[in-house]
Simulated assay, not measured.
Amino acid sequence: MTVLRNLEDRSYVLKDALSHKYLRPVLQHWLSLFSSGHLPARQDMDPAQFAVSMPHISLFDWDESKGDFYCRLAGEDVSNSFIKRLKTHTLAELYDEQRASSIRRLWLHAVREKSILFVLSSFENSDSRLNGRRIILPLQDHKTGAVTIMSVSYYDYDAGYHYDKHLNATPDDYKYVFLNFDELTAQAAFD
């Protein structure tokens, strides 16, 4: 697993996410709701603010009794990138235990640190690289503490067709960047 810590790499990741029409509106809406050190709650998110992004969004709720996230909702493009139907399945049911455990740790870290997690993926194809981007937006109910992860995925390729690349991916195929609210708002990209 590669976590990017270099400031230049981290700035690039944010600018890259903001250049995508499916990622930008969700990211901007999430930031507009972040207040007083509190994460936005799922019910605060207004899909009308990012309607263009809906096919790329999945929601995963934390189930304390299972110690895992389960998929509450998966947009059409996200669903098409998996062989198995996502909705109602836990991470342990969608991935092998090592990958599920790694995703769980990353997502819970994003919640604890009140950070957005940017995930960059890159896979070799016979004649090119296949690149994907995902932003992980932690959400938490202010009263109950219930945790939801909103994931917004964008692929430069047909993720459903290349599903085997995801299954056989190695940790080197992914790069991760955590940015907290202060780091995000300090950048001039949100003018």
Rank of each mutant, 00 (worst) to 15 (best):
M1S: 08
V3R: 06
L4D: 05
L4E: 07
N6I: 01
N6T: 01
N6A: 00
L7K: 15
L7P: 14
D9P: 09
D9R: 14
S11V: 10
Y12R: 14
Y12A: 11
K15S: 10
L18D: 11
S19M: 12
S19L: 14
S19P: 09
H20K: 13
H20L: 09
L23N: 02
L23Q: 05
R24Y: 02
P25R: 12
V26L: 09
W30F: 11
S36C: 10
G37M: 10
H38R: 05
L39P: 12
P40R: 09
A41Q: 07
R42C: 07
R42I: 04
Q43G: 01
D44S: 00
D44H: 04
D46T: 04
P47C: 04
A48C: 05
A51T: 10
A51N: 10
S53K: 01
P55K: 03
H56L: 02
I57D: 02
L59M: 06
W62D: 08
D63K: 13
E64C: 00
E64N: 09
C71G: 11
R72A: 07
L73C: 10
A74V: 01
A74F: 04
A74D: 08
E76G: 03
N80L: 07
N80E: 10
S81R: 13
F82L: 13
F82R: 15
L86H: 02
L91T: 02
L91A: 11
E93Y: 04
E93M: 06
E93D: 02
L94Q: 09
Y95M: 01
Y95V: 01
Y95K: 01
D96G: 12
Q98W: 11
A100I: 02
S101Q: 03
I103W: 02
I103V: 15
I103N: 08
R104V: 05
R104P: 04
R104S: 10
R105Q: 13
W107Q: 00
E113G: 13
K114S: 04
I116A: 06
L117A: 11
L117K: 09
F118S: 12
V119D: 00
L120Q: 15
S122C: 13
N125W: 03
R129Q: 13
R129W: 14
G132I: 01
R134L: 07
I135A: 05
I136Y: 06
P138S: 09
P138M: 05
L139Q: 10
H142G: 04
H142C: 05
K143W: 11
K143V: 04
T144Y: 10
T144N: 14
A146P: 00
V147N: 00
V147D: 03
T148Q: 13
I149C: 15
S151I: 01
V152N: 12
S153K: 14
Y154I: 06
Y155I: 01
Y155F: 05
D156P: 06
D158F: 05
G160K: 14
H162Y: 15
L167V: 12
A169G: 14
D173T: 08
V177C: 08
V177K: 01
F178I: 11
L179I: 04
N180Q: 07
N180E: 08
F181T: 11
E183R: 11
T185M: 14
A186I: 01
A186D: 14
Q187W: 06
Q187I: 04
Q187L: 14
A188I: 03
A189I: 03
A189K: 12
F190Y: 10
D191H: 13
D191R: 11
